[in-house]
Design a binder for these strands. Structure first.
Length: 307
DNA sequence: CCGGACTCCTGGTTGC
DNA sequence: TGCAACCAGGAGTCCG
């Protein structure tokens, strides 16, 4: 379940190897991994083959690698600002991994898509998209300007996603106001990628635990200071995970594993059912919510009924 | 606008 | 030991 920190670790690890590289071959081993691609696999292969790649970007859990527009092949080309620019979009889903390998390295059994790259400095590199459960996917998509400031180019299928909390363009005041306007409950809101992106089940539970808020607390009943505290805790857990994950990959042959990349030793609530709450010692419990598990401390995180 | 149900999917774990 | 049922959940869609 890669969330923002894991995806950012992948992005950063990928950057030196893909920026400036050319795609020399594309092999789609399982077309289900092109779920988000609008068009047949042949179209994906043909448009990607020969493309030159730029530095990857990310918003929330979406990652994309802009392509240098065809016909703008000069090294000085500003590239992505040109109309018609597109990008290779990657979503890791539940179990996706992007692995950089030596061109002749053996393939993982669950490899779904293989890109052969030629990099001017690093030479031939292979980029494997590995995904056990195939909730993730790759796609080619047009880059469109963001509706808000600061203006950026973003894949059209990512345009409806809100900025994530570590995006410099994230507007805290706007988020807190939007949260107040929503008639919903807090964990649902944290997981709603159109309100704030990048948070999944793990870091939602962790941030709620840190802020001592019950997952089913109605957003309207959260005072602005409590909501601001929650946002700060969201940033804190994401930042801590990022710092831990960012130290564990090596620069060129990245092996960023979406599962083992989990910073499980630092989890206070998620997956800790039955274990003592690190704050009060009472057991962490797990309840079903939104078809997933919610882990929390009944004592520290009580439903509040104001007034 | 909101929430619930459903879909996609398979490896690891549990239970008989 | 063998096998089947169950579980994990991000995101999109549809429906009431």
């Amino acid at each position: 379940m890669p969330e923002l920190p894991e995806v950012e670790v992948v992005r950063a690890g990928l950057a030196p190897a893909v920026d400036g590289a050319t795609v020399t071959a594309v092999e789609v081993l399982d077309e289900r991994s092109l779920r988000r691609h609008r068009g047949p696999a042949e179209d994906f292969v043909e448009r990607l083959r020969g493309a030159r790649l730029r530095e990857p970007s990310r918003r929330g859990k979406f990652l994309w690698v802009p392509l240098v527009p065809r016909g703008a092949l000069g090294a000085e080309a500003p590239g992505a600002e040109a109309p018609g620019a597109e990008a290779l979009v990657v979503h890791l889903g539940m179990s996706g991994q992007v692995l950089l390998r030596a061109a002749d390295a053996p393939r993982d059994r669950l490899t779904r898509i293989v890109l052969d790259l030629a990099h001017p400095v690093h030479g031939p590199v292979r980029l494997d998209f590995v995904d056990q459960r195939i909730f993730g996917s790759m796609a080619l998509d047009a880059l469109v300007p963001t509706p808000d400031e600061p203006a950026e180019l973003i894949p059209s299928q990512v345009a409806h996603i809100a900025r994530d909390p570590i995006d410099p363009g994230f507007d805290d005041g706007r988020f807190l106001a939007a949260l107040r306007r929503r008639d919903t409950t807090i964990k649902r809101a944290l997981l709603d990628q159109t309100l704030v992106s990048g948070i999944g089940n793990i870091y939602a539970d962790e941030a709620l635990w840190a802020a001592r808020i019950h997952y089913d607390q109605p957003t309207r009943t959260l005072s602005r200071p409590r909501a601001a505290t929650l946002l700060a805790e969201v940033r804190h857990v994401l930042g801590r995970a990022l710092a831990e994950g960012g130290t564990s990959f090596d620069a060129l042959y990245v092996n960023v594993n979406g599962a083992s990349g989990y910073f499980s030793h630092s989890l206070n609530a998620y997956g800790q059912a039955g274990r003592p709450c690190p704050r009060c010692g009472r057991p962490i419990v797990r309840e079903q919510f939104m078809n997933r598990g919610s882990h929390f401390c009944r004592f520290c995180q009580r439903l509040r009924t104001p007034r």
